[in-house]
Amino acid sequence: MSRHAFEERFFRIARWVSIVFFVCLTGFPLLVMLGLSFRPVSSLLNEPGRLLPRLSEIDLGGYTRILSGREDGGFGFAGFIGNSAYIAGVTAVLSLTFGIFAAYAAARLRYRGASFVNASILMVYLFPPLVFAVPLFVMFTRLGMRPSFTAVIIIYFAYTLPLALYMLRNYFSSVPVDIEEAARIDGASRLGVIRHVIVPLSAPAIATVGIYVFMSAWDEFLFALLFLVEDRDSWTVALGINQLEANVGTPTTVLMAGCVVITIPVVVAFSLAQRFLTEGLTSGSVKD
């Protein structure tokens, strides 16, 4: 067999083997999570090698126990979901509002220092988060803002704003300038242009960036741990899963139900935003 024919055959097979491998690599943990969330914990201990639950033992008890309040014998996860939704929602609104303003300036306006601003937007992400975490912890402790949602929201806002700015700026630059100039000639102010031209034309991008910011705040762990851990009523979902496992002794299958619950919004949001998100993130890197 020639090298050519050998390679043809080898890579045709290798390709399918690889695809199956990657499907297993990513799908298997997902199946474990889903499977366990529907089983009672006794079933897990009896049959640890079973991937999917038997039809007869399917049990929604994990979901009701994790979600219901502590006074009803549950673990109060509904409260954590409320906390996380509030924190992530406020963060997204703040980040988008100020991100839109700044991105418009960065994409369209001429001013001294523009190249510096553009070059340093993403610099924040190169610093170790712990370099900010220590002084912020000292500062907010001193101000008596621990535990407090405000402290966490402020930090998330500052930390998600640069990426929001960067992604929005890339999109705003692609909106044709002609439309804007037409609106200006018709007497619109610059703010009017942002409100009535840029924002409506970029609605999908803005929604996507909003979802992205929401998801990062929903998922964040380090700052939640530093600022909210003392007060169980202020736990976010991420903190909730970790603390319930580490300190409260919650049955594994019940916690799995919690994991499924916090994953669902992320999956929904991501499938809504996926197209733009992958394109928006990678578009700059494809051009040489």
Binding site: A102, A105, L109, V131, F132, V134, P135, A158
Partner: peptide, 28 residues
């Protein structure tokens, strides 16, 4: 005027970065 408007729009972002990123690093 354009530059002044640009600074105004950028102000919150710059302030947030200064207070929550640059200052903590120095303070550290």
């Amino acid at each position: 005027r354009e530059a002044r408007f640009a600074y105004l729009l950028l102000l919150p972002a710059i302030l947030a970065t200064a207070v929550l990123v640059v200052l903590p690093v120095l303070w550290n």
